[in-house]
Computed example of a mutant assay.
Amino acid sequence: MSAPTLDRSALLRAPAHWQAVEFISDLHLQPGEPQTFEVWRAFLQRPQPERADALFILGDLFEVWVGDDVLDSIASPDQMFWRACADALQAFSLHTPVYFMAGNRDFLLGTEGLKACGMQALNDPTALDFLGQQWLLSHGDALCLADTDYMRFREQVRQPAWQRAFLDRPLSERTAIARGLREQSEALKRSTAGDPSLWADVDTDAARAALQVAGAHTLIHGHTHRPADHALGEGLQRVVLSDWDAAARPPRAEVLHLDALGLRRTSLMPA
């Protein structure tokens, strides 16, 4: 089976035999939420005829990733969980290619972690050449320009020097730091009553400009937890992926499917 090519301009050309691809994001897998993990694992364990030709994970697959060395042992329940995630992905990737784009929670997933999961890294953004059209893929956080505090934080933590210094810390210390950041995030959610509509959204002008530069008509992204389709004018559109939370009421676990008939959303949860 021929593999797609990813050139320096972050253009991913799909092989001619591909007929369908799937997109997911913002699963936020974590040891404390086993229900979402089980829904996700069942999705990965579908029979081969039910799968698309490739799976694209557009960020925040994991609630947090503090370094690839979390997979070095199974000394704790948390490490057993991360290993179970990697093993499930590795098994799936033996028959279906998996492409991973870092999110704001799992940007420290490195070469060894990707290898253990059987995933191939994607730049953010990447243009997917598929079905004779260009589809622009992004996690979406870099386009939330109004969230100035986060944009400053993002610029800091994406620096190689910052990442090296963080990964040089003991695993226990990194885990504690990540726990503190999650607690801050949860506090922010509580301050907005957990309503994503009150969070900063993707900037329309920035989204339109990114599409024009890429020569694409549709931007597909996650991050905002606001699944919807947005018309941007001039034939351009923005399609937002759903987050996953099988314990929520109502539960959420949605896949975006793309084939010759276009884009369609499929919920993995009972109606």
Rank of each mutant, 00 (worst) to 15 (best):
I74C: 13
D87M: 04
W199P: 02
Q156P: 00
G103D: 06
F153I: 04
L171I: 07
D87S: 11
F107P: 01
A91S: 12
E183Y: 13
A127R: 14
L114Q: 12
E186D: 15
F81K: 07
I177Q: 03
P160Q: 09
F166L: 10
R182G: 11
D124L: 08
I177L: 14
I177C: 05
L198Q: 15
W135C: 13
P97G: 01
C85A: 03
M119W: 06
L109C: 00
K115R: 15
T192Y: 12
A86E: 07
L167R: 07
Y99W: 03
M119S: 08
V98E: 08
G113C: 08
F130Y: 01
L143S: 06
E173W: 06
Q133L: 12
S76M: 00
D195P: 03
P170F: 07
P77K: 02
A84E: 13
A88M: 08
F107H: 00
V70L: 08
A161G: 11
A146Q: 10
F100A: 05
Q184R: 14
W199E: 11
A142K: 14
P170T: 00
F130D: 02
G110Q: 07
R83Q: 08
I74W: 08
F100I: 06
P160Y: 03
S93R: 01
S138G: 01
R179C: 14
E186C: 12
F100M: 02
D147N: 06
G194M: 05
E173F: 11
D72E: 12
S138K: 06
A121L: 14
V202H: 04
H95V: 05
